[in-house]
Simulated assay, not measured.
Amino acid sequence: MAADPLRAPHDWLDHDAGPVVRPYAMTQGRVAPSGGEFDLVAFVVATMPEAPLSPSMQPEHHAIVGAAWEPMSIVELASKLDLSLGVVRVLLGDLRSAGLISLYEPPAATQPHDVDVLKAVVNGLRAL
């Protein structure tokens, strides 16, 4: 039987999508960022955007530092790079440990919600 010229020689390679890499392969099986958790609406900014990165860093690390030359939320960063949030969180932990990025959590994310404000919102919605 003749081989299909459009079919990739390997099952893990798709000509349209490129090579498929599982998220756990990008994070070496890690599921939590080093140095503790952070909020997904926290802002990421590269500390030295033009600084050369270690050759041991993965291409995704390089992409994150390149995309974070201006402050961007973690959710936006994951969307822009087309990576899952879990992978981005783990890679950001690596970059934060290496001192290549800074994370800034908005004050609203770190402080508890004001109950009076929430009640006013509910009352306003009921009035509609």
Rank of each mutant, 00 (worst) to 15 (best):
residue 43 F to A: 07
residue 27 T to H: 09
residue 64 I to G: 02
residue 26 M to F: 12
residue 87 V to W: 15
residue 103 L to S: 09
residue 33 P to I: 08
residue 51 A to P: 02
residue 35 G to S: 05
residue 48 M to G: 10
residue 67 A to S: 08
residue 101 I to L: 11
residue 39 D to M: 00
residue 37 E to D: 07
residue 101 I to H: 13
residue 94 D to M: 01
residue 88 V to G: 07
residue 83 L to H: 09
residue 46 A to K: 04
residue 80 K to E: 07
residue 26 M to T: 04
residue 70 E to H: 13
residue 39 D to H: 03
residue 71 P to R: 06
residue 74 I to T: 13
residue 91 L to A: 08
residue 77 L to G: 05
residue 40 L to A: 10
residue 79 S to H: 09
residue 90 V to E: 14
residue 34 S to K: 14
residue 35 G to H: 10
residue 43 F to S: 11
residue 34 S to E: 13
residue 38 F to N: 00
residue 100 L to G: 02
residue 48 M to T: 09
residue 33 P to D: 15
residue 77 L to H: 01
residue 50 E to H: 13
residue 101 I to V: 13
residue 49 P to S: 14
residue 43 F to I: 03
residue 49 P to N: 12
residue 105 E to K: 08
residue 87 V to R: 09
residue 97 S to R: 15
residue 94 D to W: 00
residue 104 Y to V: 11
residue 75 V to I: 00
residue 68 A to N: 14
residue 81 L to F: 14
residue 28 Q to W: 05
residue 100 L to K: 04
residue 102 S to M: 13
residue 73 S to N: 13
residue 76 E to H: 02
residue 90 V to N: 09
residue 93 G to H: 14
residue 90 V to R: 07
residue 84 S to W: 00
residue 70 E to C: 00
residue 105 E to I: 09
residue 46 A to T: 10
residue 54 S to D: 15
residue 43 F to T: 12
residue 96 R to Q: 04
residue 69 W to A: 10
residue 100 L to I: 01
residue 56 S to G: 01
residue 54 S to N: 11
residue 62 H to N: 08
residue 54 S to C: 09
residue 67 A to V: 01
residue 36 G to C: 12
residue 40 L to F: 06
residue 73 S to D: 10
residue 49 P to R: 11
residue 77 L to A: 04
residue 37 E to Q: 06
residue 74 I to H: 04
residue 53 L to Y: 00
residue 58 Q to F: 12
